[in-house]
C-alpha cells in the first residue's frame, strides 16, 4: 500500500488557485521532496495533507485514512515540523519533548523511553536542560524535528527544515533526516536543490499549484537534458507553460 494517495487535490482562495488538481502517490518509507519557487503550492499541499486546512476539491488518503472524513485518524499517524521553529521557547528541550509526549497521551514510562530514544536519535544529549528559546537556529530545528517524531509518526512532513542554517548545521540535520529513510515516510519541502538531490528517493516539482515534473533527481536531469540538478530544476520550471 502507498503511504499517501493524493487525488485531484485543489485549494482555492478567492481569485487564487494555490494547489490545482494535484494527483500523486508516495510509497511507504519513501523520502519525497516537493520543490518549487515561492507560491508554487508546496506549503499549502502540506497543510492540506496534515489536516490544517480543508481542500476545496479532491481528497488524499494517508495510509488509507481520508483527510476529509478521518482528520483525527490522519493526525494520529503524522508528525509535522513547520517552516518556523515551532518550539515552546520558555521550556527546556526535555520539557518540550515531554510536552509532546503528554499531548500524544503517553504514559510516564513511555514518555521516559521516547524522550531517551529521541535524545539519542537527534543527538540532543548536551542541550536537554537548556531553554529552547536560547538555542541556536540549528539546534532549534533539530529539536523541532525531534518533537515531530515523538508521536512515532508513520508519515513526517518537514517544511523547509534547513532554512537559514549554516553549512555544518544543515549537514548534521541531513544526517538526522537520512536516518529516517525506510522507517518513516518523509515529505520534505525545500528551496535548496542540493538538499533535495542528496536526500530524496523521488522529487516532485510544482509551479503555480500544479505538479509539472516527477521522478528521481537523475531522471529529472535527463528529462531536462542538464548535468546539474539545479539547472534541470530551472529549465523544467521555465519550460512549463502554466
Amino acid at each position: 500500500m502507498n503511504a499517501i494517495e493524493i487525488r485531484a487535490l485543489t485549494k482555492k482562495y478567492k481569485d487564487t488557485v494555490a494547489v490545482n488538481g494535484l494527483t500523486l502517490s508516495i510509497g511507504e518509507g519513501e523520502l519525497f521532496s516537493l520543490l518549487g519557487v515561492n507560491g508554487a503550492g508546496k506549503t499549502t499541499t502540506i497543510k492540506m495533507l496534515s489536516c490544517l486546512i480543508k481542500p476545496t476539491h479532491g481528497d488524499a488518503l494517508l495510509l488509507g485514512k481520508s483527510i476529509l472524513t478521518d482528520a483525527n485518524g490522519v493526525k494520529s499517524i503524522i508528525g509535522i515540523s513547520p517552516q518556523e521553529t515551532a518550539v515552546a521557547p520558555g521550556l527546556s528541550v526535555q520539557e518540550n519533548l515531554e510536552l509532546m509526549c503528554g499531548i500524544y497521551g503517553f504514559s510516564r514510562e513511555k514518555t521516559e523511553s521516547r524522550v531517551e530514544e529521541l535524545t539519542i536519535e537527534c543527538r540532543l544529549q548536551d542541550i536537554l536542560g537548556k531553554k529552547a528559546g536560547k538555542l541556536s537556529g540549528g539546534w532549534q530545528r533539530r529539536l523541532s524535528i525531534a518533537m515531530a517524531l515523538i508521536g512515532e509518526p508513520k508519515i513526517l512532513f518537514l517544511d523547509e527544515p534547513t532554512l537559514g542554517l549554516d553549512v555544518i548545521a544543515r549537514s548534521e540535520l541531513w544526517d538526522t533526516i537520512r536516518a529516517l529513510k525506510g522507517k518513516t515516510t518523509v515529505i520534505l519541502t525545500t528551496h535548496y536543490m542540493e538538499e533535495a538531490e542528496s536526500l530524496s528517493d523521488r522529487i516532485g516539482i510544482m509551479k503555480n499549484g500544479k505538479l509539472i515534473a516527477l521522478g528521481t533527481a537523475q531522471a529529472l536531469m535527463e528529462q531536462a537534458g542538464k548535468d546539474r540538478f539545479e539547472e534541470a530544476f530551472v529549465a523544467l520550471v521555465k519550460e512549463a507553460k502554466i
Partner: peptide, 12 residues
Amino acid sequence: ESAFLIRLYATP
C-alpha cells in the same frame, strides 16, 4: 507567530 500552534493543530 512561532508556528507552535500549527504544530499542535496537527496533533490529536
